[in-house]
Amino acid sequence: MKLTKILMVLLAVTLVSACGGGSKFKSYNGPEVTQVIVDKDARRMYLMHHKRVLKHYPVQLGFQPDGHKQREGDGRTPEGHYLIDKRNPNSKFHLSIGINYPNERDIANALALGRDPGGDIFVHGGPPKGSRIDGSKDWTWGCIAVTDKQIERIYAMVENGTPIYIKPSRKSAMRPMLVN
Rank of each mutant, 00 (worst) to 15 (best):
1 M>Y: 14
6 I>P: 07
14 T>F: 15
15 L>E: 14
18 A>E: 08
19 C>L: 10
28 Y>I: 03
30 G>D: 02
32 E>Q: 12
32 E>R: 13
33 V>F: 02
34 T>W: 12
34 T>Q: 09
35 Q>L: 15
35 Q>F: 14
36 V>R: 07
36 V>S: 03
37 I>S: 11
38 V>N: 02
39 D>H: 11
42 A>M: 13
42 A>S: 08
47 L>M: 03
48 M>L: 15
49 H>W: 07
50 H>S: 12
52 R>K: 08
53 V>S: 01
54 L>I: 03
55 K>V: 08
55 K>Y: 12
57 Y>H: 13
59 V>T: 07
60 Q>K: 11
61 L>T: 11
64 Q>F: 13
69 K>H: 07
70 Q>H: 14
70 Q>G: 05
71 R>K: 15
72 E>A: 15
79 E>P: 11
79 E>L: 06
80 G>K: 13
80 G>H: 11
82 Y>V: 06
82 Y>F: 11
84 I>G: 00
86 K>W: 03
86 K>T: 15
89 P>F: 02
90 N>K: 15
93 F>S: 02
94 H>V: 02
94 H>K: 08
95 L>E: 05
97 I>Q: 04
97 I>P: 02
97 I>H: 04
98 G>P: 14
100 N>T: 10
100 N>W: 01
101 Y>M: 09
103 N>K: 10
104 E>D: 03
105 R>P: 09
107 I>P: 07
109 N>A: 06
110 A>T: 04
111 L>W: 01
112 A>R: 00
113 L>A: 10
115 R>P: 07
115 R>K: 13
116 D>C: 04
116 D>P: 08
121 I>V: 00
122 F>C: 06
123 V>H: 01
128 P>F: 15
130 G>Y: 10
131 S>T: 06
132 R>Y: 06
133 I>D: 05
135 G>D: 12
140 T>C: 09
140 T>E: 03
142 G>A: 07
145 A>V: 13
146 V>L: 04
148 D>F: 01
150 Q>A: 11
151 I>C: 09
151 I>A: 09
151 I>H: 10
153 R>Y: 10
155 Y>V: 05
156 A>P: 13
156 A>I: 09
157 M>Y: 10
158 V>A: 07
164 I>T: 11
166 I>S: 04
176 P>C: 01
178 L>C: 04
179 V>K: 15
